[in-house]
Write a protein that binds this DNA or RNA. Structure first.
Lengths: 233, 233
DNA sequence: GTGACATATAAGTCTGACTTTTTGTTCCCG
DNA sequence: CGGGAACAAAAAGTCAGACTTATATGTCAC
């Protein structure tokens, strides 16, 4: 997905990033740039660029006379989309999915409330369109089409909130929803109750009813929490 | 703060990062690596490392035969602590502060609710200690001491939530609170009502009353929103 | 044991040559 | 006159080698 192979250093990252985020090198492990360069058969300059990127993600720290030290998980930039993707692809997937779903449960209701106040007429229209698309594909194992509209729906909500930080979570939510459809148990058609809630959120936003939009969205995200067996009120 | 001068490429970033995030180069502007290297009086290798880091933050995109293109604001990794710091230091400060405060208003109440369920006895103790520290320094222009305990309080809440993504926002909240104390209008002693709320949150967490902890924290964050004239319910 | 000093090590830096990709131009032919 | 293929130039990408610098660690005298 996104950007496969944007240069040699990117290839290195595609291997090293997932390895580190998967915990293959325990915190405190020390790597040497030269050794890594040999292992990946690239020049030191390329390897250094890769290390610099990992460093900017706070996955590693490079110190003179010591080497490249792998940092503890609590230091990582867990909001970096690249890091999120690496973790979603590895063995940490379930935990990452839980973290993200909890984050969603905090952010999306507030975003929906703001969207109800700030959404443009175009965004309102887009929203109802998405909701209708979800309804139309909610039966007959049209999972891909359903997912497409579901992702679009949440993206519009987050964008319409007018908050750049919320908007930036659109990609994350997309990956969570896609993950649920593709990897996890989702053989059956989506829950009709969830579909209805989306339609109602679209209505509430169009009606500028912030409180209602927030409450309904909270119901949606609480459903997502329950799917993952995360304790709810 | 944090890491001043971790190598030559870091110095370059200290100048180039703020410049880009401040909007000095409009989206679509094209820079050339060699020219930049000359301008900053560093070698191309160092400049390339800096560009790679900016690229990993999605601030720029490097393409052959074209150069280093500055990306649109909506592409930026606005959750990267470095990017946040750069923006808080520049002319985008007010907007960044608003975004972050809205994010806080979404995250912290949910985090407090989770903390009420999951906090360890040690964390509960720490929390009450912080709240008491806030009370003790809430009068007599002891702003720095008050800030210290305030930051610690919110950090404990976010950490005790058990969610790594929430925990990671501790630093961000710290910068927001520090910014409010140092830059903005905060000559008077803190609002007594806010102090009381913190004490009550600590009590609620200790009493494992998730709903109450969430509600009280929501009151705190709504106060923060009002301070910035962000429309509230 | 403590402090100063020496040493080895690995990252950091610079330079210059070469490769590769991409874009824009030119030129030929339909 | 238009479209497509060949060409040329530009900028990033890659590599190899030499050199610098910081620093952890070990050594020795006191």
């Amino acid at each position: 997905m996104s950007t496969p192979g944007r240069g040699l250093h990117g290839r290195v990252l595609d291997t090293l990033g997932p390895a580190i985020t998967a915990g293959e090198y325990p915190a405190g492990s020390v790597l040497r740039t030269d050794e890594l360069a040999q292992r990946f058969e690239v020049s030191r300059s390329v390897m250094r660029e890769a290390v610099r990127v990992l460093e900017s993600m706070h996955l590693v720290e490079s110190r003179r006379r010591v080497g490249v030290t792998v940092l503890a998980e609590c230091e990582w930039n867990v909001y970096d989309p690249q890091v999120i993707r690496w973790r979603l692809a590895g063995s940490e997937r379930p935990r990452q999915l839980r973290s993200l779903t909890v984050l969603r449960s905090a952010v999306e209701p507030v975003a929906a409330g703001l969207a109800a106040r700030l959404a443009t007429p175009e965004q309102c229209a887009e929203l109802t369109e998405c909701a209708l698309g979800m309804v139309a594909n909610s039966r007959g194992h049209r999972l891909e089409e359903y997912l497409f509209h579901d992702v679009a729906f949440h993206r519009v909500i987050l964008t319409a909130s007018g908050n750049e930080m919320f908007a930036r979570l659109g990609g994350v939510v997309a990956e969570v929803l896609a993950g649920r459809t593709h990897h996890d148990v989702m053989f059956e058609d989506p829950d009709p109750a969830a579909v209805t809630l989306h339609v109602q959120v679209a209505e509430a936003v169009r009606a500028r009813d912030a409180e209602r939009a927030e409450r309904l969205t909270r119901e949606i995200t609480e459903g997502a929490l329950q799917e993952l067996d995360i304790l709810a009120p």
